[in-house]
Nucleic acid binder design. Sequence first.
DNA 1: AGGTTTAAATACCGATTGGTACCTTTATTC
DNA 2: GAATAAAGGTACCAATCGGTATTTAAACCT
Lengths: 202, 202
Amino acid sequence: MTRGRPRKTDIDTVLDRAMKLFWKNGFEATSMNDITAETGMAKPGLYNCFGNKEALYAKALDRYINVFGVSVAELAASAGPLEHALREFLLAVARSVTDAGTPCGCFLTNTLVENSDKPSEIAALGRQLNERRNRALSERFHRAAAAGELGQDADPDALSAFFSAQALALGALASSGSDFPELCRYIDTAMTVLPPAPMAPA
Amino acid sequence: MTRGRPRKTDIDTVLDRAMKLFWKNGFEATSMNDITAETGMAKPGLYNCFGNKEALYAKALDRYINVFGVSVAELAASAGPLEHALREFLLAVARSVTDAGTPCGCFLTNTLVENSDKPSEIAALGRQLNERRNRALSERFHRAAAAGELGQDADPDALSAFFSAQALALGALASSGSDFPELCRYIDTAMTVLPPAPMAPA
DNA sequence: AGGTTTAAATACCGATTGGTACCTTTATTC
DNA sequence: GAATAAAGGTACCAATCGGTATTTAAACCT
């Protein structure tokens, strides 16, 4: 089947290692030579596989969201009570941003911050992925509201925007040095924003 | 008084312009040539005035906090009701991170995120400045608790940590593209974490 | 075995990086 | 006016940057 010389390293493995470098050091502070040293794939191979540095970063970010990131689709589709699903989601983010096996912080948050004022395609991709999360949470909150799980006066849009932003907050907090227990306490406090589910109608 | 040739540009003016470049583009993506072009001070002058690139960044960050940043000392010393002071503080941060005259986002948040995994002195300075804010808010919340402004079951440490983190959250949100009205709605939601002040004892 | 296809590896490109040596210019002080 | 002090400006340094041309090595197909 596969013609030609076989790859020395699986392409997703290369991508994972490059991802961790970008995640840890950012786009500008990571050189293609660094990536070569970390992955074992020489520069011509990198350019042949991924295009250029920007395209490699974009593919790493996409893989981060779809493979390593906390599944936002899972949250959107969750069936149980909103409070439980939401807490599990935030705890999963907290676990991810303080995981000892990966760089601290959130790769998406890092991307948004590093590229906030630049018109790069990377910035556009970051915004798009962030917006996807916003929509997923919004859908989930509207579903909860329709099911009467929120109080009458609760605003699903405001609540979903707040909790979506908590993912960014957790990333920034981890980058500032907070450890997992601190993030758990933070989540406990943030969860008080959610109004208590009303009793079943009498 | 001052011997020698007078400066072409005031040293604080140079620092302000360098600060905005670092704020907008980060440490790595800002070159000393960029700073020369923006400030009019040639490289030998920059190195003579500020040391090296890291030292220049550190001085720019320090100036950001003490001159441009929202006064955290003011919040700590504020006399009125906690809720009002807190809301004004967060609104001031929201205004700063979306101000059209300066780069979007928060320079301190950017610094923490860019240097999170590096053992640089810049990272240490960022942590220290962030910790200073944490302490200021903690003092203010403990004062409010002692004054009976919070409920009996309220946890001043958890609350102050949460609201201090909102400054990071606002910076990250602005970097993700949120505008001032969005941040105001976000603040409205976050403020619901604060328990209502109890009535005067009966 | 020979040709074809694909990846690895080396070596290189011009441009830019942080940083500096050196000289000139503009001021004050004697 | 001469000496001195400090800043401006040019030109330069080795190292590294993103990116590429070219050759060599390793597999499959006929």
